[in-house]
Design a protein around this nucleic acid. Structure first.
Lengths: 238, 238
DNA sequence: AGAAAATTGTAACAAATGTTACAAAATCAA
DNA sequence: TTGATTTTGTAACATTTGTTACAATTTTCT
């Protein structure tokens, strides 16, 4: 998909403002002038997409590192019945499918759609490997990026492995109140959390209510307060 | 844990047979003499553990790359009630927790126990980064290793996201019969698959039976044959 | 081959979750 | 602020899953 599309000439350009890239995980710890120096020395492409455009198709090969320079894109899965399930948003200056550039399955696992007008920077894999070998900060940063991805997924699986919603919730709450904090803010809506747990929304709501009724937690809006840590821990042994 | 233990002198040695490392994912594509040359040039340690020994404690910091030179180790989680859940076996010549050497959370997520007499090779993170920068094959291999880990976890989450066991099973079966093959071998026992799905074993057995009764698949032992692909696909839209 | 161990099928029942629907509450946007 | 939209609580009921138990079958080990 990406490689077959034709764009008007102005969609490609050789120079740009590298300042925005200081925020990118890949360039963390590198000064903007330094980033500019590094990038001007290597082959790369820029492409722009209008809001709503399909940028890559699920199943397309991943042959390059793709960084969102500006705008926001989303990953989405399409199931058999054609229904679309949103997976995640990737705002600038994030990278697309960085865990699929290497490894055995170099295929996009999702469709990628531009949520807003978007500009991408594209660096071929071979070029990128050379970049990694020549710059230890970028190497470290990239290793951090894909390792963080793994760590995120590992943690998610830890929730999903609990058979009951109570178990998942207990694990989730304990996880967020590790450092002696007794309360924390559910950073999302119940609808989103239900999705995250792969569970029906009213079921989650019900279980939250039960935990409160039983005096394990107090929930006021999105603020969760742990009342009985010990009994929460017990729920963790499915 | 690892760094505090004391061993008899013979547990440490400077020279070893590097032939076994040709099989290691980290050294794939490198000849054994080359591996020897690379490894003799860098700082490393070897440690041996008797079968049954606790090698690392869940929560210990990950500061080095650890490769299982010989033997088999297992990762296990311990829950609140002290019950132990086995996570995975890592036979030689695999690496321990490679996705936790980098990234933000450099802590072992599990206990690691020697299943048999085991020898480990330990390379400090800083030394390892230098190795990655000096050898593009090792760099590629390591990127492949942690990327494969991510890809494995992503796929697992795809199953777990289905709310019903039927959905999980359908996705699982379709996944394994992509390349026009209509049948495949369940590479594990139902008990293990039930664990993988985070689901009770009799429930899995029941659903397998239902799929067969309804004529979607045929199951004879561990051999699964797809009969009605279309209806299986439909189950995939939870 | 034969005994022992692990795996599988199955049934009855309890428990948890999903579904649908609707109203109350909170949040967002004009 | 107000009106619109989204989120949340809740209830009734259907469906799915878990639990326990036991026998049949298969695999493993000697």
């Amino acid at each position: 998909m990406l490689q077959n599309q034709k764009f008007p000439a102005y969609f490609y350009r050789k120079n740009m403002d590298y300042d925005q890239l200081i925020q990118a995980p890949l360039f963390r710890g590198i000064k903007s002038e330094e980033i500019e120096k590094i990038l001007t020395g290597i082959d790369k492409k820029f492409k722009k997409f209008k809001a709503g455009t399909l940028i890559v198709h699920s199943g397309d090969p991943v042959t390059s590192l793709i960084i969102v320079i500006s705008g926001v894109v989303k990953g989405e899965m399409v199931d058999y019945s054609g229904r679309v399930i949103k997976i995640e948003d990737i705002p600038a200056p994030g990278a697309l499918a960085s865990a699929f550039l290497f490894g055995n399955k170099n295929l996009f696992p999702v469709n990628v759609v531009a949520l807003s007008d978007t500009e991408l920077m594209i660096i071929e894999k071979q070029v990128f490997i050379r970049l990694l070998m020549n710059n230890d900060i970028i190497l470290s940063n990239f290793l951090d990026m894909i390792s963080n991805r793994s760590q995120f997924l590992s943690e998610k699986i830890r929730f999903l492995n609990f058979k009951t919603i109570k178990g998942k919730l207990a694990q989730f709450i304990l996880q967020r109140t590790m450092n002696d904090r007794s309360s924390f803010n559910l950073g999302m809506t119940q609808t989103e959390l239900a999705d995250y747990f792969a569970v029906a929304r009213p079921s989650l709501s019900r279980v939250l209510g039960e935990l409160e009724d039983e005096g394990l937690i107090e929930a006021r809006g999105k603020a969760i307060k742990v009342i009985d840590r010990t009994r929460l821990l017990k729920l963790t042994s499915d």
